[in-house]
Design a protein around this nucleic acid. Structure first.
Lengths: 141, 141
DNA sequence: CCTCCTTGCTAAGGTAACCTGAATATAATG
DNA sequence: CATTATATTCAGGTTACCTTAGCAAGGAGG
């Protein structure tokens, strides 16, 4: 870990993640400075026809209470609404407003831009090798 | 970000980091469950002949106050001591105790083990290509 | 139908890992 | 020397989670 040691993959993964994610989070901040990185979990796990809080929490691997706070924030900011779930009166469906849809699209545009810049930097072969190696690590390590 | 989109490098980097770092953090927890992941910043940026708090904070890219808390913890746990810096009476040098040295060695052993397992999983060529690609992203993106 | 257990959400309060602002001691500089 | 800068520490705040506990509604068995 000290400077005398060569950089290990674990440390490199973290640094590389910070670099790339910062670009995406800066893009989010440009859309609306009140949106924080934590809110990305909501956008990331959203589903087209609406999603229940409990399912959103499960997908993001956090408690429904924690996810509830993020949803509260984005509801107050006008990015989503909670509507009653017709299939279960205990539940509510979280659906995006037009504003939410726009933000989601902008977020993906930022991610796609990072992907394109990576292909330029590493070559398309290099980018897809990196993709494959990371996928391998996630599934098999 | 949603399930309908293919995984992007940014997301893969984060997941891969979580997998590998978890192995290292579990090893740390086995040494002493009172050591938390945040403390790794101290071990990581330590210097052999002792280091000042302000320099440690700068290397770890956090405020001296935040680093001070981590150092407080590890001092209470007996992993390090603050000794007066002979070169500047305002400053203190943070130096590891024997216990701290042992923990540092154990931490590096865990990281080296991860590195070895990666070489098995990806092949040594694959591991070093991954290393090179990540280094490239960090320096040039 | 009624209990009884489960599920979906929310309210209240706690913790970890950071932060900013301000105080104190010492050093460096004109 | 008086001034300004640096090293640390104290106090208090914020963010992003968590646990505990409560209520409303659904589902299963007798």
């Amino acid at each position: 870990m000290a400077a005398t040691h060569p950089p290990h993959i674990v440390a490199l993964l973290y640094e590389a993640y910070l670099r790339l994610s910062d670009v995406v989070f800066q893009a989010g901040k440009a859309i609306d400075p009140r949106i924080r990185p934590a809110h990305s979990a909501v956008f990331f796990h959203m589903e087209h026809d609406g999603i229940r809080l409990s399912r959103l929490a499960e997908k993001a691997q956090m408690t429904p209470q924690a996810m509830g706070e993020l949803v509260d924030d984005l509801e107050k900011l006008g990015y989503l609404r909670r509507v009653p779930d017709p299939a279960d009166r205990r539940a509510k469906l979280i659906v995006f407003t037009d504003r939410g849809d726009d933000a989601l699209r902008a977020g993906y545009a930022a991610i796609d831009d990072v992907e394109r810049r990576l292909a330029v930097l590493l070559g398309e072969d290099g980018r897809s090798s990196l993709h494959a190696a990371l996928t391998r690590v996630i599934t098999d390590f």
